[in-house]
């Protein structure tokens, strides 16, 4: 193949790529705020004794876990305006679609962490005279929160990567700007390689942090 690399075609046009990165980071941060907070509430519903609360919550989780993210995003962008007559700007729609998806996955992380607190610790809490609320606040939640941090970070960085899917519905994120640039410059190899490096540059430190946290936890659990 006779192809000469010309990185200049991309480096001369970094402006739009950084604009796209800013949008991608906005989507990621906002979706994570939704996912980290609503995910916790959803986990409590999933763990509820009352079927009326538990079953809808489980259905919500399974819907997002068992359908492709791209289908969720496309469905959200096309069906929500038609069904509910709600028209929001694309970034808000993207945040909601990604945020709800992350909510479901984070709820699972919280649920697993809460259930991983050994039963014996709760028995010890009863033996020490702690009330049910004190047992939850002082024994269950501190342990569950710590245990869930690595998974929440992994899910969060997953959402950062999945956010590239919103490009297909016209949100001007990093992926969208990259596609546009590649088309304009006829330089897909250079453009998409650099786009990949952008994603890598953000994800890699976080995944390293997760690895470090898990090693530290592994040591503490001995």
């Amino acid at each position: 193949m006779d192809y000469t690399l010309d990185l200049g075609a991309v480096t001369r046009n970094l402006g739009p790529l950084f604009d796209g990165l800013a949008v991608t980071l906005q989507l990621t941060v906002a979706a994570n705020i939704i996912g980290i907070t609503a995910g916790f509430g959803l986990a409590l519903l999933v763990l509820s004794r009352f079927a009326l609360l538990r079953l809808p919550a489980m259905l919500f989780v399974e819907f997002f876990r068992c359908t492709p993210a791209i289908v969720q995003i496309v469905w959200f962008f096309y069906c929500v305006p038609m069904l509910f007559n709600v028209f929001l700007d694309p970034i808000t729609m993207g945040v909601l679609a990604l945020g709800l998806n992350l909510t479901a996955f984070n709820a699972e992380a919280y649920r697993a962490s809460i259930q991983a607190v050994p039963r014996e610790h709760l028995d010890a809490g009863i033996a020490l005279g702690l009330t049910p609320a004190q047992r939850v606040l002082n024994i269950v939640l501190p342990q569950a929160m710590r245990a869930s941090v690595p998974v929440l970070l992994t899910n969060g960085i997953g959402t950062f990567q999945q956010s590239a899917l919103v490009a297909i519905v016209g949100v001007a994120d990093l992926m969208y700007q990259g596609k546009t640039l590649a088309t304009q410059t006829y330089r897909p190899i250079e453009t998409f390689t650099i786009i990949a490096l952008f994603y890598l540059a953000v994800s890699f430190p976080v995944s390293q942090l997760v690895g470090w946290l898990e090693r530290r936890r592994g040591l503490a659990a001995r």
Binding site: P118, E120, H121, L128, Q134, Q143
Partner: peptide, 23 residues
């Protein structure tokens, strides 16, 4: 108990003082 039930997120002293302070 047979199984260790010290709360892993608290120091030894915090394990001891939790119930007296809260209860």
């Amino acid at each position: 108990f047979q199984h260790y039930t010290l709360f892993p997120h608290l120091t030894v002293l915090q394990n001891l003082t939790l119930a007296p302070r809260k209860v």
